[in-house]
């Protein structure tokens, strides 16, 4: 199988049952994306496929050979951090760091959805402008769990980048 990940082409020969997550981690040594539950419940495996955030544990790798896949490694490096990665550091949006790549990829996808004007479960008006205050961020990020309780700092990091980008 072949994959386009972070702009580069990769080849791999995994089991037909392999999830996109396991191909990234076990076949391509891209271990930035994490396995937390393997059942689509924790969000640690979140990547961007054609710009949309999805759980990479709940999809077969074989189905994504024609897609543009972006992982945490593609957003930035320790020496050249994406603004959201830098915001997570400055706002201390993590402790153990295991949920962090999934949080960041999910937040990138989420902000794109907000830019498109998508409402959320907590939006008063389905057709109104999107205002990313605390409650909206929490709802839109509810698919990403953090066991170290960094949530308030995660929301601060996201809000900083959202407001900076406006």
């Amino acid at each position: 199988m072949h994959f386009t990940i972070n702009g580069e082409r990769h080849e791999a020969d995994p089991d037909i049952r392999a999830s996109l997550l396991d191909v990234l981690r076990e076949h391509l040594q891209l271990t930035g994306t994490k396995k937390g539950c393997d059942h689509g419940q924790c969000g640690a495996c979140t990547v961007l496929v054609n710009g949309r955030r999805i759980n990479s544990c709940l999809t077969l790798a074989v189905m994504h050979q024609d897609d543009e896949i972006v992982t945490i490694e593609g957003l930035g490096t320790p020496d050249d951090l994406h603004p959201l990665q830098a915001a997570f550091v400055s706002h201390d949006g993590f402790q153990c760091g295991y949920c962090t790549p999934g949080q960041i990829c999910s937040a990138v996808g989420m902000m794109d959805e907000a830019k498109k004007g998508w409402p959320s479960h907590v939006s008063d008006d389905l057709a109104g402008d999107v205002v990313l205050e605390d409650g909206e961020i929490a709802e839109r990020m509810s698919g990403n769990l953090c066991r170290c309780s960094a949530y308030p700092n995660i929301r601060d990091a996201i809000r900083q980048v959202w407001e900076g980008a406006k």
């Binding site: 945490i72 990665q85 993590f94």
Partner: peptide
């Protein structure tokens, strides 16, 4: 003092190595 975690850049960039993430040959 509010200092940044020294492991921060590695963790947020997905380069920190957790227990199951060491790539050995012939695993």
């Amino acid at each position: 003092k509010p200092i940044d975690r020294v492991d921060g850049p590695l963790k947020v960039a997905g380069r920190a190595t957790y227990a199951a993430e060491y790539a050995l040959d012939d695993m």
